[in-house]
Computed example of a mutant assay.
Amino acid sequence: MNYRKLGSTDIRISEISLGTWQVGGGWGGNFDEKAAADILHEAIDGGVNFIDTADVYDDGMSEAAVGRLLKERSEQIYVASKCGRQINPHVSEGYTPEVLRKYVEASLKNIGIESLDLIQLHCPPTAVYERDDIFELFDRLKEEGKIKHLGVSVEKVEEAQLALNYPNVQTVQIIFNMFRQKPAETFFGKASAKDVGIIVRVPLASGLLSGKMSRDREFDPNDHRHFNRDGQAFDKGETFSGVDFEKGLDAVEELKGIFGEKASLAAWALRWILMFEEVSTVIPGASRPSQIKANLLSSALPAVTNEQLEAVKSVYEKYIKADVHHLW
């Protein structure tokens, strides 16, 4: 495992880490504590030292599983959680320092720790990025020892750029992958100039970039890949990175030809992201331990060549860019 500095913090984290949206066994299913434990322990065994969770993942059961992990391991494990998505309706007016404070304190209790290494605003409405009172709250929480660092998780590049206006924002979590390339063009350089760490989520476009899906693939009715393709429940960019499923499959076939069969497309998709030095870590999820093992192999792959980088860009421009580039 290779480790990278997380922005201006003093933390060095695994370049492949773990996102825990589906850590209980998969999107749409019942939470399985044993499956969650097996996945989390497999990650730590492989050198992962950074776990990203959220209070809304499986109604807090993801956070609780991370808390159990911390009690069972002796390694240094950095924990990031998120707050704000419980607000309903999810509008700027619902965001208040009092409400967010309660969420952070509830997460600390749920995980069983006294201080979070990183707390992130969880994809708040754009208007929140212009509210000083919200960001000032986290200075108070830091003074109280309840958090060590503040970050934001965003939907749009515009929001990421707004977040950079706050000196206490040390990380930005953003969707970036072969099907969502805009952040590298318009945001990464600005984040680097301010020494803000970049956490990449949805690196495999909800599994599209695994190279294992087919047109007849059926998803559980409770899986967001079934019910949220048009943004019925939340931003559609979280589902297949906003890419049309059929068109994405066509693009995947061309990507497979670029990289060949020596490693999976999923591994190459992660390695492609790691080619961008501004990225601090990538947080693919996993619904079983074998996926952890497969994801970690990407760190050992050779560098993506310039020719391959150009070929990936061409596939993006041919199939994807017109549909997604202007939206996020």
Score class of each variant (00 low, 15 high):
8 S>L: 03
11 I>H: 04
11 I>E: 03
14 S>G: 10
15 E>N: 13
15 E>C: 13
17 S>D: 07
29 G>Y: 03
30 N>Y: 02
30 N>L: 00
35 A>Q: 08
38 D>G: 08
44 I>R: 10
45 D>S: 15
48 V>H: 09
56 V>W: 06
57 Y>D: 13
57 Y>M: 15
75 E>I: 11
89 P>L: 11
93 E>C: 02
97 P>A: 01
98 E>D: 09
104 V>K: 08
106 A>Y: 09
108 L>N: 08
110 N>E: 11
114 E>D: 14
114 E>W: 05
116 L>V: 11
119 I>G: 04
120 Q>Y: 07
127 A>K: 10
134 I>G: 03
137 L>P: 00
138 F>V: 01
140 R>F: 04
148 K>L: 09
151 G>F: 02
156 K>R: 09
163 A>L: 08
170 Q>E: 13
171 T>C: 03
173 Q>S: 00
174 I>N: 01
174 I>S: 05
176 F>C: 09
176 F>G: 02
179 F>M: 14
180 R>N: 08
185 E>T: 08
192 S>T: 04
192 S>W: 01
196 V>S: 01
198 I>C: 02
201 R>H: 05
208 L>W: 03
212 K>T: 15
214 S>H: 12
222 N>G: 01
222 N>I: 00
223 D>A: 04
224 H>C: 12
228 N>K: 12
228 N>R: 07
235 D>I: 02
238 E>F: 03
242 G>E: 06
253 E>M: 06
256 K>N: 11
260 G>N: 00
277 E>N: 06
283 I>G: 00
284 P>Y: 01
295 N>K: 03
297 L>S: 06
304 V>Y: 09
308 Q>L: 07
312 V>C: 13
314 S>V: 15
316 Y>M: 11
320 I>V: 08
325 H>W: 11
